[in-house]
Simulated assay, not measured.
Amino acid sequence: MNERRQCEFFLVRYVPDPVKNEFVNIGVLLREAARPESTIVRFTRDWARVRCVDPDADTEMLEALESEMRRRFTERGSDLPPMMKTLEDSFSNLLQITEAKACLAETIPAEIEQLMQLYVEPRKRAGAKRWTGRQAIQRTMRTQFEHAGVWDLMQKRIAAAPYTRAGDPLKLDCGYRPNGVIRMFHAVSLDGDSELAKSLAFSAPALRDGVARVERALLELTAIVEPIATLQEDEDRIVQYRFGVEAMEAQEIRVLTTERLPYIAETAQRELRV
């Protein structure tokens, strides 16, 4: 039997109304006891509970904070006092970190997963929600990039407007720039609906021209889609799927399924020299 490690964990709480003292646990910090440099940061991927208590919550900022906290612990070995100051400065007491609680961990990854299910995402234990469509693709994409250690190095929710025209609402999920090319990735579900595929195909030429003009770089735009096998021989859905793929490929968008994400993440890992 593996010897368990002495660890401690902290909960990150979103507190929209300090007067009422209502809060939602949104993340976990886990580390080996007395070793701040070993801290692992994990935030929720499901912001539904946060939006229930605060419909105007800036979840994009919360996701960015997760990446910033992880970077600080990894690169600087920061401890909690300076991290608390960062939270206070950025969120005006909307976030709190609890006191440390002791735990014994067989492995750090397994322990943080268990803590997330226990304190942050309890619905997972009951299997209450199965992610589908674009949201499922986004989560799979993020997971693979995180496993490769490149997620925090990538730009997220990349606005198309600076490259196309003012008012363009399109935001690409993520991307990075190795040398003279910019690689952008966007989750596109083709399960019974090709509208997003058509919209991305329509935007691609202007986006490509804009990247060349503004960044002096080539754009490689990749749409990540579910495998066609998931459509279970439904002829109408298969026709829609193929239409969406062809519409994107006609505009030089590379179309890859989620099954190719490990390869994509490995390439990013190599190009970003992680």
Rank of each mutant, 00 (worst) to 15 (best):
Asn2Cys: 01
Pro162Asp: 02
Arg123Met: 07
Thr267Lys: 08
Leu272Glu: 06
Leu207Asp: 04
Pro81Asn: 09
Pro109Gln: 13
Arg142Glu: 15
Ile264Leu: 14
Thr44Asp: 05
Phe145Arg: 00
Ile224Val: 15
Lys156Trp: 13
Ala136Val: 01
Phe202Ile: 07
Ala212Glu: 12
His147Thr: 13
Leu207Tyr: 02
Leu29Asp: 02
Ala48Trp: 07
Arg254Ala: 10
Leu256Thr: 00
Val274Asp: 07
Glu246Trp: 08
Asn179Lys: 11
Arg45Gln: 15
Arg157Gln: 15
Glu252Pro: 00
Met141Glu: 02
Glu66Met: 08
Val188Leu: 07
Met248Asp: 04
Tyr176Gln: 09
Arg260Ser: 08
Leu219Asn: 05
Glu99Ile: 10
Ala160Met: 05
Arg139Gln: 14
Arg216Leu: 12
Tyr176Pro: 01
Gly192Asp: 04
Arg270His: 13
Glu246Gly: 04
Arg273Thr: 12
Leu115Glu: 07
Arg208Glu: 14
Ala206Ile: 01
Gly167Glu: 09
Ile253Glu: 01
Ala148Pro: 05
Ala265Asn: 03
Ile112Tyr: 02
Leu172Gly: 01
Gln251Tyr: 02
Val150Ile: 14
Ala206Asp: 14
Pro227Gly: 10
Pro36Tyr: 10
Leu207Lys: 04
Lys20Leu: 14
Gln6Tyr: 04
Arg177Ser: 15
Ala212Gln: 08
Thr59Val: 15
Arg49Trp: 01
Ala206Ser: 11
